[in-house]
Nucleic acid binder design. Structure first.
Lengths: 130, 130
DNA sequence: TAACAAACGTTATATTATAACAATGATAAA
DNA sequence: TTTATCATTGTTATAATATAACGTTTGTTA
């Protein structure tokens, strides 16, 4: 089990870059950014990303194959994630709305499936791009 | 503009396979399935997939990079899609729930973004796999 | 300190997706 | 009917995303 707090060297490097970024980052763009720090292979990036996701430090934006830092306290280890995505400028914003999150979490599928987690992605144009 | 009804040859071939499938299909698995019909290149599959998505005939399951036929009348050209995904057997079910869909569609982001579309993916264990 | 697990580095390769270009077919306006 | 236009096709090549497999190192804890 990943410990709640301690990050390994590579995990910290990758997290730092994602946290500093203004928007979502792709794995290979992270890779290019850390080559000066001695990380040379995609595998190293993907391993760090996997762990950071497990810990809830970052999220993957599935529709973009890109990664953002978690800015929410709501989503507790990514059980309930929601994002707004601008189709023009590619901006991604994490949505932290307790009501929305609770409503969706409480949804029960007729077919008897018990949900552990959901991910919601909204698409549109942000304020700037409208 | 794609016409509402008429599908081209390749589009029809690809749609047929997706509709017959029990679960989500990946682009390259579609490709292997249609090589006997004279379709040889990924580009041909992806082009058909793109058009079928535009027409609302199929949906992409973003977390799986796979494609399913649309079974819902609710989602009118994929403005409001929701799926339940079994993490064990990979089964995907389109959720067609007007209340859920309306609730989410009416959500307004504080930061002034106007949404055109959303995609929601639930994860868990299906009845069988529980 | 021995044993084990997690993280690391590395090479290779698998999987998913798009670029670019020429040819063909379908539609409809002149 | 001819010509213009636009969607679709076929094809080759390549880009972008992600994982397999192996051995080594580091960190924890019994």
């Amino acid at each position: 089990m990943a410990q709640a707090q301690t990050l390994s060297r590579n995990q910290q490097i990758v997290l730092d870059i994602i946290e500093k970024a203004k928007g979502p980052l792709k794995a290979y763009s992270i890779l290019f950014n850390v080559q000066k720090k001695g990380i040379n292979a995609p595998q190293q990036i993907y391993r760090a990303l996997d762990k950071l996701i497990e810990m809830g430090k970052i999220h993957k934006i599935e529709s973009k194959n890109a990664f953002v830092a978690c800015r929410s306290s709501d989503c507790e280890i990514s059980k309930a994630t929601a994002f707004s995505i601008c189709e023009s400028c590619e901006m991604v914003d994490e949505i932290s709305d307790t009501k929305l999150s609770k409503y969706i979490s409480s949804f029960n599928h007729k077919k008897g499936m018990k949900f552990k987690r959901f991910n919601l992605e909204f698409f549109g144009l942000c304020k700037k791009c409208k």
